[in-house]
Design a protein around this nucleic acid. Sequence first.
RNA 1: GGGGGCGUAGCUCAAUUGGUUAGAGUACCGGACUGUCGAUCCGGGUGUUGCGGGUUCGAGUCCCGUCGUCCCCGCCA
Length: 593
Amino acid sequence: MEFWKRSHLCGDLRLPDKTSRVTLSGWVRRRRDHGGVIFIDLCDRTGLTQVVFSPEAGTEAHLTAQELRSEFVVAVRGAVRPRPEGTVNPKIATGEIEVFADGLQIINPSLPPPFPIEDEEDLQEEVRLRYRYLDLRRPAMLKNLHLRHRVAGRARRYLDEKGFWEIETPLLTKSTPEGARDYLVPSRVHPGKFYALPQSPQLFKQMLMVAGVDKYFQLARCLRDEDLRADRQPEHTQIDLEMSFVEPENIFEVVEGLVEVLFREFRGVEVTRPLRRMTYAEAMLGYGSDKPDLRFGLEIREVGEIFRESSFRVFRETLEAGGVIRGLAVPGGASLSLKQLEDLTGFCREAGAGGLLWILLKEGGALKSPIKKSLTEGELVRLREVFSCGEGDCLMLVADRPETAATVLGRLRLKLAADLKLIPKDRYEFLWVVDFPLLAYNEEEKRFEAVHHPFTSPHPEDLALLETDPARVRSRAYDLVLNGTELGGGSIRIHRQEVQQKVFSLLNIGPEEAQSRFGFLLEALRHGAPPHGGIALGLDRLLMLMAGLNSIRDVITFPKTQKAVCLTTGSPSEVDPAQLQDLHIAFVPPPGE
RNA sequence: GGGGGCGUAGCUCAAUUGGUUAGAGUACCGGACUGUCGAUCCGGGUGUUGCGGGUUCGAGUCCCGUCGUCCCCGCCA
């Protein structure tokens, strides 16, 4: 069927257009049938226009309009005219006009939608994902897609202007276990061999630096076969970049400029530069996290020194065993109930601590605390000093191993902020976390693991420690954090083959293994690799935060569920046995089936 | 792998201590209506209470198992 070509979009028309004739097409969002006169709201991605069908304008169109239902696709012809006195709708952009229709074409009818196509609907995500094309048709979702388009485009333009080349790297690549689980693709031509889908373009972009590309970027799809979260999908998109002959400062400069432009142009927010810097050690001590949320206080303090002489056995024994006493002050927390404090204590136990010690500083100087008897006046004075707190506040202390105290208080801090509603809206607190340790010891496997990845350069000042005390070696890795979310991470890479070998050996990757897995990289490093480094920013997380959302699924067109299923298409699914045969694959059911 | 929440009409939800024929709003269907914009008015319930088993005179409700979905821990170089 020949359909009428539209002359305008549904959100376009304004009062000055009143004399013109137009053709609009779109979806019938709502029909208001008054018998003699019928109104419809006609929608497309630009907005909504009211169309009026009256026998006076076109009897046939009016007759056909009676058949219209929600989400029919139609074309409408008519005159744009100002709305009659008193019927202007100030709630919509086109509210001063309407289209007085003399022609109507039903291009495609629609089944009744399973849910109304509007933003206010509070729907189960399962339903949204099953009919994702309808969910995406909602204005708020189309807005998210539009933001994504504009941010991606602006990032491209920004990086282009900074001299970066956009370069693609393979999707079918080599499996490099260590790190996340790979998605594997069997090779038909090479029985028993597999490609891996990339977890990141890491090694390719490093080789591009060896090639002399100098400045590379890519909006790279990255795949990891790990469990999902609200901010983690099996596939996500990174703004991935790499530069040659650079120090961390050069990377910071580029990235800060990028977020500055994006937040200014799309959020109207001025980012204060340079962004705050914090070492990993400071972050863990003060916030109990390597991605501190700086939108609120509740900073963690070390108070072991105050209790050096404490009569409280738990404090004394913890300190003697090399543990720490840390805590935070909750402003106004003295009004917390015993029940709330018990719940918080339970929360800390589940997080791994022995317990939570609280001290309520009541009005009039009174104390309430399970350790009231052990507390001296001198200790209290110093606690008030350290936490700058006083009457009406509550102190919460944890005595434990340093790592445990950090993570428990870090989680407690986030919980308190959420429970007590201490997190301000529309605040964007960026920071760089720097000086990550290079290695972390894995107790279960009795070996070191790379904290960032195995290609991260050790801190130049700590090179000697590689031999003597690997655990204390800092790396030249950095994370960009926004509001407690890791937006991205990167590092200066190792560009010397012998340093790379050394790090491999610390990671328990022997020469043969290094050769078989990363031989191509080692070889590249020996062919004139320049000093280089880069970063990858999670585009989905960035958009989620820019749009004020709680899940990256809302900025991804067809996301997977927590079990990594696509409810729209039903993937993953079984395949034809012939396909498996082609790939030399046999299915072995898991035990018990 | 573990902990927690949810699962009743197309959608969002209700249903007393385990009690009779599982309701409401909305959507949908039929009718009326010439200025609505969440149109209104009249009429209509369209259901495998996720699935399987158990307890009971009787199960949406209790128990066991299972499936799905969401949040978190582990995991995510």
